[in-house]
Nucleic acid binder design. Structure first.
Lengths: 347, 347
DNA sequence: ATGAAAGCGCTAACAA
DNA sequence: TTGTTAGCGCTTTCAT
């Protein structure tokens, strides 16, 4: 591996000149020198040693990405966006996925800090107050991804969850539904779930529709508890005629739960999902859903963070909210007159 | 941030002693010193600076993960495994996703090397010979993930694709199918796709079944080209009575394509997929599929790599192959007697 | 059982 | 316009 000294010797200049050159401080450098360096560096295949740089400057070109759980399509798509954003700015991302565990996320944060990351993108797990306080104290620029804690004064890049929930709910109302259910993952103080719930509730209210506790269900975060929740809701006498499913994983589970009950979508029940997935058009029936925009979210967050790093070291404190859009496919129809006739369930 | 010097001063020892302590070289260190250091380090919240370490030693505790395309469930699950493996060994992963582009992957490799990674996990994009030669020349330990090039002499961690394909095909044969199709992504010299195709072909041959070109289709890597391929295959007069779908994304597309044709699974057509996904039980019908084991694959690869790094710097050259297993659900049944009666297609 | 000191490759004063 | 030089925090001989 060639070092800065090799380059300097080869090009007959001092290492300071080389350093200036590779850092773009060529303000009054003779064209001859520049050209010579360009060639020498190319010939030697020289790449600056990131560790030495980081040691010297206390900064690195590393972006720490701390996410709650990587094993979701939503997140891998977001990471693609982050990756592209970082690359555009010449940064590399260090990803840590915490498996939804606070302690793990905490340890990872330390590791990342220890790697001298220049900035952090955090999709927080559910945390206690002392952890939140700790995050608030991070000196590097930080942007929260997708969700945050209201108490934490860090900028957030997310979609407008409230708006998305309104879009979904209103769509159902427009089709004539008055009995609308919600299936979500458990709510806690993490902003996004709460916002979706609130959007749902207030849209109902504004249309003068009643809110029945039986028609709001919370499932555990898994690949099957949403099926249970769906079945329970639709086995009741006061089952709704339409449901709003609050995230990508749940969308599949709701559809499956309905199918298990022998209910047809949209003939018997209408469904609108959140977080449009690439496979939505392939489902039975193709799913109408609010499109979150994970790729764009990730890219914007990365770009904002890198820009903040380049400039001072503070991210402008405003949040960035994307307006989601409703993608209409075939899972919504008018409410079915009369009571739900459940065919014998499949299981 | 506390440095080694702060610790040394606080504990009244030299920095050399501190260094020995944090690196576990406490062979003949007085218990008193050890205890004093333990406490001091804890009090100060000292964490060694990774950059300084890496600069000095030329090694780091970073594992570079170079993958072709992160935006797949299969890969995010694999990353979870890698993450856990790395963590268990005290390493941090640096992930780069190349968006299936060779040049991008190449640039990322350079960046990773530049970060002084201690080892590399590579899921290669389709590459030319000179790139392959370049990979072969990497001095750090490297393990190939999921697929590789036969010519490249690097150890591979993957599932036994041939065995998986046999399992799937044989399952269909056992049900009495004699006309079996395959839908795969385009084949190139990347090992895994070829292996699945070969497994399929040889199982057919061993049962004396004919191989018809019309029943083997290759789709472009996308979220919809598999739908087209499926429709084309099943619109033909010699459509098979069963299909083997060769990967996670294709599974959904094949099911969708069949549905669009008005064909019922498994009544009209049986389907067995590859790469069991968490949503398989939620599909219509719940999918019978060969379970790849991305999490275990990732974890094992990380473990093997870290172990190699700790010891010498060469990975033992053998490949690790997981035997996949067939998960039986509801998408396979006996072949339907008589010609396929296609109901009017949905679109 | 512990310490002193050199130096990893680089940046950023400061000098010239 | 370019060069000299002091460290960044750590590991590792070599002494003691």
């Amino acid at each position: 591996m060639a070092t800065i000294e090799d380059v300097a010797r080869s090009a007959n200049v001092s290492i300071a000149t080389v350093s200036r050159y590779i850092n773009g401080r060529t303000l009054g450098m003779s064209p001859a020198t520049k050209e010579r360096l360009r060639i020498t560096i190319a010939t030697l295949g020289y790449v600056p040693n990131a560790a030495a740089r980081s040691l010297k400057t206390g900064r690195s070109r590393l972006i720490g990405v701390l996410i709650a759980n990587i094993a979701h399509m939503y997140w891998s798509t977001m990471l693609e966006g982050i990756e592209d954003g970082c690359r555009a700015m010449g940064y590399t991302m260090l990803i840590s996925s915490a498996g939804n565990d606070l302690e793990t996320q905490d340890r990872y944060l330390r590791t990342l800090l220890n790697q001298n990351v220049a900035g952090l993108l955090i999709n927080p797990v559910f945390a206690d107050e002392s952890t939140i306080a700790q995050w608030a104290a991070i000196s590097q620029p930080v942007i929260m991804l997708d969700r945050t804690y209201p108490a934490l004064r860090k900028p957030l890049v997310a979609i407008d969850n409230g708006h998305g929930a309104r879009l979904a709910t209103q769509h159902l109302i427009d089709y004539g539904h008055t009995d609308i259910g919600l299936i979500s993952w458990e709510i806690n103080s993490l902003s996004n779930r709460k916002e979706r719930l609130d959007g749902f509730l207030s849209t109902l209210q504004e249309s003068g529709l009643s809110i029945e506790p039986d028609r709001i269900a919370f499932a555990r975060e898994s690949w099957d508890d949403g099926v249970r929740a769906t079945r329970e809701m639709f086995e009741r006498a006061n089952a709704p005629t339409a449901v709003f499913s609050a995230n990508m994983e749940l969308n599949l589970q709701v559809l499956s739960g309905l199918r298990l009950l022998g209910l047809r979508v949209p003939r018997d029940v209408s469904v609108v999902g959140f977080d449009a997935a690439p496979w939505d058009p392939l489902l039975e029936p193709p799913l109408t859903a609010v499109a979150g925009a994970p790729y764009r979210l990730g890219k914007l967050a990365a770009l904002r963070l890198c820009r903040a790093i380049e400039q001072g070291t503070t991210v402008r404190p405003h949040d960035s909210r994307f307006r989601p859009v409703l993608i209409t496919r075939e899972s919504v129809g008018p409410p079915r007159p009369g009571p739900l006739s459940q065919k014998p369930a499949r299981t």
